[in-house]
Design a binder for these strands. Structure first.
Length: 289
DNA sequence: AGACGTACCTGACCGC
DNA sequence: TGCGGTCAGGTACGTC
């Protein structure tokens, strides 16, 4: 139906557009895609535009394969198939995955596959920082994007003793450090800023200057913020598919991100904006020391 | 070897 | 109204 495409367009023009696909977003999509397990792929679409990675294997190998499992590692969505192949999808900066009743190609649709129940999975990415790769499942762990990843923020591998060791061996600032995938995965610019505010730590602090107490607080804040974001982003994709139009709403909870010159919600001091490693940092220099 | 800067890309927004 | 410039950021990679 044409209406589906119109809804899809309206969805992206909403303020949800400013919500980057960080870990909570990808987790939300994974949950929203759970019910495609068992469906069989019958048709494949690929645009001629280059994405960040060229697929390792020909997408035609997807034909006839059944979806057997979907999981997430960092910001990578991994779909295992019945024929020992795996799809790896990364949304980059602007990627979207939707389920459609019909595939009517929109601008920036770069990959799509039809299932045996005539529904479509569509990957749309205006800026093409994302990618869709197809590899043998046994080669997954050797995939160059997956080999050097640090711990998942919500798993027990992201803990005080390991994080403490990594921070002590670094010479950079804490903001840049927590955005580094080797330290912990899935903490992008938004959550890095919000986590530092929540833990009262200035983004300017050198990693080896943090006290044990501050490191404990920071770990707690990162877990807390990401959990909260997953909770409030949980409606975006599945509700969209049902055409209910509920969008992720974690952006309403930003305390410092994107609020330069605004008043700190705790002390009324003005929020600062600086640039670190080429990325904007937002913080309150009263509340964050 | 680690730290930093830059390229990739399009759309939104701003000032003239 | 349009047009050019700037900004947004995840990740790999080049450079020092």
């Amino acid at each position: 139906m044409k209406q589906n495409a119109i809804i899809r367009r309206a969805f992206w023009k909403s303020k949800f557009l400013s919500h980057m696909p960080e870990l909570p977003e990808v987790e939300t999509i994974r949950r929203g895609l759970k019910n495609i397990v068992g469906r069989k792929i019958v048709k494949i679409f690929r645009s001629e535009k280059k994405l960040r990675l060229e697929p390792s294997l020909d997408f035609q190998a997807l034909k006839g394969a059944k979806i057997s499992e979907i999981f997430r590692r960092a910001r990578y969505l991994i779909i295992n198939l019945s024929n020992d192949l795996s799809l790896i999808i990364h949304l980059g900066m602007s990627g979207r995955i939707t389920l459609e009743q019909e595939f009517k190609q929109l601008k920036h649709d770069h990959f799509a596959c039809e299932f045996n129940d005539e529904t479509w999975l569509v990957f749309n990415d205006p800026r093409r920082f994302g990618f869709v790769d197809l590899v043998k499942t046994k080669d997954l762990s050797r995939h160059k994007m997956l080999t050097k990843l640090g711990p998942e923020p919500l798993e027990k591998e992201f803990n005080f003793s390991d994080f403490f060791k990594k921070l002590r061996s670094k010479k950079t600032n804490i903001k840049t450090a927590i955005m580094d995938n080797h330290m912990v995965v899935g903490v992008g610019n938004i959550y890095a800023n919000e986590s530092l505010f929540d833990s009262g730590i200035s983004p300017l602090r050198k990693t080896d200057s943090l006290t044990k107490n501050e490191i404990e607080k920071l770990i707690f804040s990162i877990k807390k913020i990401i959990k909260a974001a997953i909770k409030s982003g949980g409606s975006s994709i599945s509700d969209y598919v049902d055409s209910h139009g509920n969008f992720g709403r974690f952006q309403d909870d930003f305390k410092v991100y994107g609020r330069p010159g605004g008043k700190c919600l705790q002390c009324k001091n003005l929020i600062q904006r600086i640039v670190q490693s080429g990325r904007a940092s937002f913080f309150c220099n009263q509340c964050q020391k």
